[in-house]
Design a protein around this nucleic acid. Structure first.
Lengths: 160, 160
DNA sequence: GCGCATTAGTTGACAGTTCAAGTGTTGCCG
DNA sequence: CGGCAACACTTGAACTGTCAACTAATGCGC
């Protein structure tokens, strides 16, 4: 467990990493929130359900895929449900589980917000990078996410 | 304003970017919070003040450097002040401004948390990357942060 | 030097998140 | 099959962040 001070290059890399992790999601969320009334997290939930068979996924899988706590998802789901964008139904095979289902209204909302979201990603991230940069970045992120020490124990990006 | 759907590579890059921006700060904050009782943001404020002449900086400069709203900083500063880690004093030359000053207790707290923080950054980020990766990443982040569209209007990393 | 836009910061109500505790269900060991 | 740990989820309280409204000081055009 090296505790040696960061040198100038390391410190600057860290600074930029933090700045980016703060500013980038904020920049993309802003428009989404203003024009569609969705936080980035809420959008991710709807988008995930839309991709799922039957527009349905268990709460735990949604939480896992979006990297949030069960509690946070539960509260958010309550709000989305209240807005009529999702519904929660009992899972027949495992009665501990709860299905989150995207409603028609939720799908509509998603379809309205999708272009806003996509444009944001292009504007903030993709437009700034050429193909080589994208490849480098993708490879580096894969390395960082595969690197055990990032999510307590288990790791991200498993395509079970 | 291109609204064209993201292709597979673009979507996966976006996914990984989001995952990283969520998981990385969380991973580093966890230890810091547990062992030092500081959020990453609070730590950044203390660290910034420690680097400043007289351990002092105006609130606006702190807010700018840490990329947060004036309001968020104001609330956080109230809590830090209550804990005795910083003090707020009037600025003599511009009476609108308020100086945030790191107290001795704040400096001590910072010194205790610094090694935890540093170890976290090494463990979560630096250890995973070789020199070439670090250079690539630094260059890509610089590009992204310079790219106008990330902080409303103005841009980050100005060393005025 | 008056008026007004701008800047610096705070405040309070509200929304969202975390944390710890709770319910009910399932897997599984003996 | 009885008991108990682990799992899936929810809840409410405490905390943190956001938003809009506010105070106060400054710069500036004329």
């Amino acid at each position: 467990m090296t505790t040696e001070q960061l040198d100038t290059r390391e410190a600057s890399l860290w600074q930029d990493l933090m700045a980016f992790s703060t500013l980038m999601p904020a920049a993309i969320e802003e428009e989404l929130r203003r024009d569609a009334g969705l936080s980035l997290f809420e959008f991710s939930v709807l988008a995930l359900l839309a991709r799922s068979p039957e527009r349905t996924e268990t709460m735990s899988r949604v939480a896992e895929s979006t990297h949030v706590s069960a509690s946070r998802l539960s509260h958010a789901a309550a709000r989305l449900e209240e807005r009529g964008l999702i519904e929660r139904t009992a899972c027949p095979t495992d009665r501990r589980s709860v299905f989150a289902v995207l409603t028609d209204a939720g799908l509509e909302k998603l379809e309205v917000s999708l272009p806003i979201h996509t444009a944001g990603i292009r504007r903030v991230v993709l437009d700034a990078l050429d193909d080589a940069d994208r490849d480098h970045l993708a490879r580096i992120l894969a390395t960082l996410l595969r690197h055990d020490r990032i999510g307590g124990e288990a790791c991200a990006t498993d395509e079970a």
